[in-house]
Write a protein that binds this DNA or RNA. Sequence first.
DNA 1: CTCAATTTGTTCGTATGTATG
DNA 2: ACATACATACGAACAAATTGA
Lengths: 264, 264
Amino acid sequence: MSAPGLSRSPIPLYLQLAILMRRRISVGEWPKGTRLPAIEELMKEFGVARVTISQALAELERENLIIRKQGRGTFVTGSAEERHWLALATSWDALMRMIEGTRPRLLHLADGVRPPRISEKEGHPAPAYRHMKRLHVKNDVPYCLIEIYLDQRIFDRAPERCRTETVLPLISEMPDVQIARAQQTLTIGSADPEIAEQLQIPINAPTAEVHRFIADASGCVIYVADIVYRGDFIRLDIDLLGGGAQPTLAENQYQGGTRANDHT
Amino acid sequence: MSAPGLSRSPIPLYLQLAILMRRRISVGEWPKGTRLPAIEELMKEFGVARVTISQALAELERENLIIRKQGRGTFVTGSAEERHWLALATSWDALMRMIEGTRPRLLHLADGVRPPRISEKEGHPAPAYRHMKRLHVKNDVPYCLIEIYLDQRIFDRAPERCRTETVLPLISEMPDVQIARAQQTLTIGSADPEIAEQLQIPINAPTAEVHRFIADASGCVIYVADIVYRGDFIRLDIDLLGGGAQPTLAENQYQGGTRANDHT
DNA sequence: CTCAATTTGTTCGTATGTATG
DNA sequence: ACATACATACGAACAAATTGA
């Protein structure tokens, strides 16, 4: 019995409990309509004081996940959360489809004062870059923050469109620009205070960090992007047999109710 | 001037500052040997009291990242952390290579009391499953926790090997078992108290959660795995032009030196 | 309708940790 | 180092609402 692994102090105990119980609800362990165990029992299970349990429940009630009624008990009102996942693109075509129609919000635009971080393996840097910082928003929820370094020569061809539109389609529209390499690396991080504020998530909330670069035929890196996604927005589907990720499948698979396809 | 986005209360202020400054060190903004700004300046920058800065610095000193000397200043001693990434496999072959030689530590073995969660799109469930819970360890560091649900009929063919070896190679060795589908979905989460304890990471540390399933030719789901990785161990490389991920590239690409399996 | 049992809600006192000046 | 203020957490007691006998 008692708490399995409640740590002391970094996060207040009652919030840890809230996290724990929130998970039980979202996982379905406590389905909608369930009456939670009485506070007395929760005290026993978690080995904490009455008030602490009560605080945790108050937090969940504030989120409209439960209702507490004197003399009756505490009931689950929120069902398992339905999240709208964003399937991360893993091919150029899928990437184009994914960002189609996106209108990024420009936060910051600067000349190439600060060069992007480019490793030698990625290619050699362009003579100058234009730096942009943008926020992508869906349903009024900001879900990713992009720092783009774009070859100054490309930017200057269509400065206005580069400022207001997504850059990748623009590049691929230019017939004389050959895209020889386009790669990205995904890692997992957590939100520092600045990112937390801009993405409107708590500090240290999990994030997906994508480093993307594009090189032309001469090996010159014409585009670099460092993207930070909200962790709870990102999903990546991988078909192990197909030899690689299949984002098309991924996008339909979840909400669309499309059948799986084993053709290649 | 003042803090960009220091949130109030969920995490103590001095720990938020420690996180922030720890990042500056690991990112290279404050390289090894640097003398940090005087406390007075840090007070101004973050807009907090002297003692709070001091608390944050004490935390970093405890981690051997800095040294504080009275009358001289605070100096960075720890360099940017060198992480040994584990490239997540995105094809069957890469997956085989990745888990080659792995000896999982069995935590729990049970009969198929609890069925795995299988969506209709994945296939129809087997009559019975064997449930295993395992921990994977590398250099004495646990980096992932796996819950495996294996078709009882397959388990019974080689119970001993199933207990002690990785399951996937076993399955692919069985000539009469046809693997028709093998897919996995990666999402990002954070460690609940139980997982945090087993992976030895702080509560709410970011994690990568992989749901993997294998179906045979008849559409029967013979294997389901729910895997939780430490977020700081996972990296995923994607070649946008190649049409899919290229994990082989991934393993070598990063810090050149560290290979997947090196012995001490 | 009353009584008792159950269950949530509130308050008091105390102790500790956090943050300021 | 000190004084102050606030949040967290505990234990204990008491209040209020609901239910069923």
